[in-house]
Amino acid sequence: MSTRPSSPAGSSSIESSVKAAANRLTEAFRSRVPCAPISDLIGPDDVVSAYRVQTLYNARRQANGSAVVGRKIGATSEAVQVQLGVDQPDFGVLFDDMAYVDGACISMDELLQPKAEAEVAFVLDRDLATGNLDVDQCRAAVAYATAALEIVDSRIAEWDITFADTVADNASSGVYVLGTTRRTLEEVAPVEVQMTMTIDGELVSAGDGAACLGDPLHALTWLARRAREFGEPLRAGQVILSGALGPMCAINPGSTVTAEISGLGSVTAHFSTKPTI
């Protein structure tokens, strides 16, 4: 993923800091050992540099064989913004090795500090690369919507993050699970859906479509415009995780997480118990 915005030209210190931050996140991803915040390298509010770190970090995953299959929007609900201590949405990349089927058992060895969010996912059947990229155009580009669990994760120890940290860390991406019920936007209005999420049968989160930037389609529109700005517009076939409909909740080894989203059915993921060393 490339970006058009860039930090001031001729700043070797900024370039060095971006590379150092990407190196830190890459090693945390490789070793499965959380690292110190990277905001000490690029600054907590340097969004331009943070996206440059994300680009470099993600390019290394692609070099190792991971393929881009979509995008995710993060921090779309006020509840999650409060939990993360941020005040605006961000976006990251979805890779093929992040995807799981409904009912899958996900190894906790693949994750560091996972938390679950329930979301509306969109799958596109048209590119969103030209035009006004307004709500009507983005709506028309959606093949179908489905329920999704996003398992957010952070390479930053103790989730001690600023906005720059979460952006650089591929928007705190972990893995995701799509449900099997598919609905066109003629059949369901994303803004009207109601969500409940349980962990081991206990209700832990609830919300609705309006919690996601006022409407998950508004989130999609925001993303389409940002992605084009950054030189990598949304493409047909991509999966778009539109953002949480309610608070995220930590996952423990051995847990089962289920989200129910009205009109879109349910989606479940099981999590393995980490082996004893």
Rank of each mutant, 00 (worst) to 15 (best):
G65D: 01
A67S: 03
A67Q: 14
A67W: 00
A67L: 06
V68T: 10
V68H: 03
V69P: 09
G70M: 02
R71H: 06
K72N: 04
K72C: 07
K72M: 04
I73K: 07
T76E: 04
T76S: 03
S77K: 03
E78A: 13
E78L: 07
A79W: 03
A79D: 06
Q81Y: 08
Q81N: 02
V82K: 12
V82S: 06
Q83G: 06
V86P: 00
V86G: 05
D87Q: 11
Q88H: 05
P89I: 06
L94N: 02
F95S: 05
D96N: 12
M98D: 05
M98Q: 13
A99N: 02
Y100V: 09
Y100M: 08
V101Y: 05
V101H: 03
V101R: 03
A104W: 13
C105V: 15
S107D: 15
S107Y: 15
M108R: 10
D109G: 03
D109F: 00
E110W: 09
L111K: 14
L112V: 15
Q113C: 11
Q113K: 09
P114R: 15
K115C: 05
A116H: 13
A116E: 01
A118G: 14
E119A: 09
E119P: 05
V120L: 10
A121H: 13
A121C: 13
V123T: 05
L124A: 07
R126E: 13
D127I: 10
L128M: 08
L128Q: 07
T130A: 11
G131M: 02
N132T: 14
V135W: 12
A140V: 00
A140C: 02
A141N: 08
A141V: 05
Y144F: 12
Y144Q: 07
